[in-house]
Design a protein around this nucleic acid. Sequence first.
DNA 1: GTCTATAGGAAGATAGAC
DNA 2: GTCTATCTTCCTATAGAC
Lengths: 192, 192
Amino acid sequence: MADRQALILEAAVRVIARSGIRGLRVEDLAAEAGVSTALIYYHFKDRAGLVQRTLAFINDRAVGYTEEALQGAQDARDALLRLLLSELQETGAVRENSVAWGELRASAVFDDSLRGNLVGSTRDWVRDTAELVADAQAAGLADLRVEPLDVAERLTALVEGLSGRWLSGSLDVERARELLAGAVEAELGPRR
Amino acid sequence: MADRQALILEAAVRVIARSGIRGLRVEDLAAEAGVSTALIYYHFKDRAGLVQRTLAFINDRAVGYTEEALQGAQDARDALLRLLLSELQETGAVRENSVAWGELRASAVFDDSLRGNLVGSTRDWVRDTAELVADAQAAGLADLRVEPLDVAERLTALVEGLSGRWLSGSLDVERARELLAGAVEAELGPRR
DNA sequence: GTCTATAGGAAGATAGAC
DNA sequence: GTCTATCTTCCTATAGAC
């Protein structure tokens, strides 16, 4: 069984998914994890440290289902679509991650200390996406006139927009996935 | 000069733009507005009522610059672009509104009582956008094969995604506007 | 309508025993 | 390492005077 710290971090993800980063109460987390508040302070120093560590934990976990999503892709264009769709799934872990990610971005508007992490992760994601766009072009599966970085930046930003609507109850996940697939078609042009 | 309530509401917008909905402290607002906390409770009953009224106030104000953006549009396609770009401007009021809107969406993930307002406003915005897409098609300025509602839903969601990146410091406003213009081109196809 | 003063209740953080 | 108990700070909300 995992150690106490890991148990607390897993509980923290659940609490953040339920109440948000700013709604995270150390006492709630203690109850969720079945430990005392003092233990949390012992392991994580203070609330800010706890949040920091939880965000890093979430990021690591995301790598898992992202790579999983790429398994079995037919070609580069298919891989691109799968990568993007992997953020829009009604799965426990994905939803938790999406909520946390959205909260992180929303919180970073008011809290500089959260921006570093965020900007870096965003850039990585955009870069990976742009590479798949370029691969698709090289394989003759996408319009050669489009700029991979522009397309990647738009598609990933669209995922974030759709995700926000999904999680805030304006859009169901199936419709979001459909819209995203349509955007990929519009951006890359017909398969040649 | 406006009455006290309006002064408080204007101050509340500034405080929300600076600290977020969940970061709004009645005491901060009192200082910003130059009144006592008691007066705020006198006029708005409680914190929730204050937030509610402020959000409505922000919505009303947004109608102003939205309509302004449509002035001088050359044609339906141009009007569509202007409508969308009006959310991405480095102007005091627009930035304040964008921050508040993003916060509202982010908060609604955890607070059901905020969803009603949000879902309705989103639907209206998407509908107005879809109408402009249909107008552009009728005027021969957009590909007739695209579904106006799908395009509108994607473009408005993209605006929200770009706006989130802009406000959280991942993207500057000029780049965001450029990317958005590119998306309109990709979605509507070349002018015919 | 508006203020000063303060009650009352969360929530973060720590002391000290085990 | 982990807990119980508690300190302290911050924040919403109200009482009561003007």
